[in-house]
Design a protein around this nucleic acid. Structure first.
Lengths: 154, 154
DNA sequence: TCTCGACTTGGACGAAGTCCAAACTAGGTC
DNA sequence: GACCTAGTTTGGACTTCGTCCAAGTCGAGA
């Protein structure tokens, strides 16, 4: 966390209390929060923080490469503080659980694939969709799908 | 196209003119249209068709497995009529071009990856993001990014 | 401490998508 | 062909997610 703040300050990022709180929420939670969830968590620490500021700050953290933006379900974007290791996402379409899984040998190679089509590729998003162990166990029982936001260790 | 309509009718899908038009637009265009684009195209053939009907019909085609829903940029969902062959998407972040590229040996194996975590995986979305040849050629010239919706042969 | 430019705020706005009740119609039955 | 009914469509209201803007605030260098 302190590392992050130091890095940001080094890049002329003015360190306001709002930005600090947003960064804390993201790094502290280790899950994939939506902007609204970040706002809610941030507001617990700093009640007067505005939605616009949260959006601005998230956008900046993304463009600084400190946070990764993932769109899992086409609804709200989610913010993933895990940018250090290349990883993919395993998503439960029943309960919304999002798990980070490490990329392995044999996973798609960006450069090789893109170059065949003249593209210069700089990122690959891989999302596996399926059903998690818990939902599989619940089997026949009808369950109202609910967003779990991802308890994946990021 | 006729195959599609036959398949749908066999599944007790009531064949209305609205549904026929939406299916025609999707299959005819072979590109990745947004719901709004589908509505605009459909309205050329059937001016009184409503947005709600287009959304309903797209949702049904997706749940029937005749169309694939892809979220490329976190904005509008896009609808991909190519569900026959396993393929990935190559997206130009500069102009919005979307290209279908075939999956190849060495691409992620859904079942194997998911099972390590107790998941039963039924789909994988792979999106490569980068810059297309045209935008690379335009190089330094500042260009207003615009959605090209994807001219990829689906 | 002062100053200034970057940052924050709240509210308006816009795009994408959903919901609902009323009207309509495809397709089966007679 | 006429009738019937459940499934479909419509338009408009509504929700959610996100962006924009002008005015006010504040971090950090001088």
């Amino acid at each position: 966390m302190d590392d992050l703040l130091t890095r940001l300050r080094q890049r002329d990022w003015r360190l306001t209390s709002q930005r600090r709180v947003v960064a804390e929420v993201l790094v502290g939670e280790h899950v994939h929060l939506t902007a609204d969830e970040v706002h809610a968590r941030a507001a617990e620490l700093l009640p007067e923080i505005s939605r616009a500021t949260v959006y601005n700050t998230l956008g900046e953290l993304v463009s600084l490469g400190e946070v990764r933006e993932v769109t899992i379900d086409g609804r709200a974007k989610r913010y993933d503080p895990n940018v250090t290791g290349l990883h993919h996402h395993l998503v439960c379409t029943s309960c919304g659980l999002i798990l980070d899984i490490p990329a392995i040998a044999g996973d798609p190679s960006p450069l090789a694939r893109g170059s065949r089509f003249g593209f210069v590729v700089d990122a690959v998003d891989v999302t596996y969709r399926g059903t998690c162990p818990d939902c599989l166990a619940m089997d026949g029982e009808r369950r109202v799908p609910q967003a779990r936001g991802g308890s994946g260790r990021s």
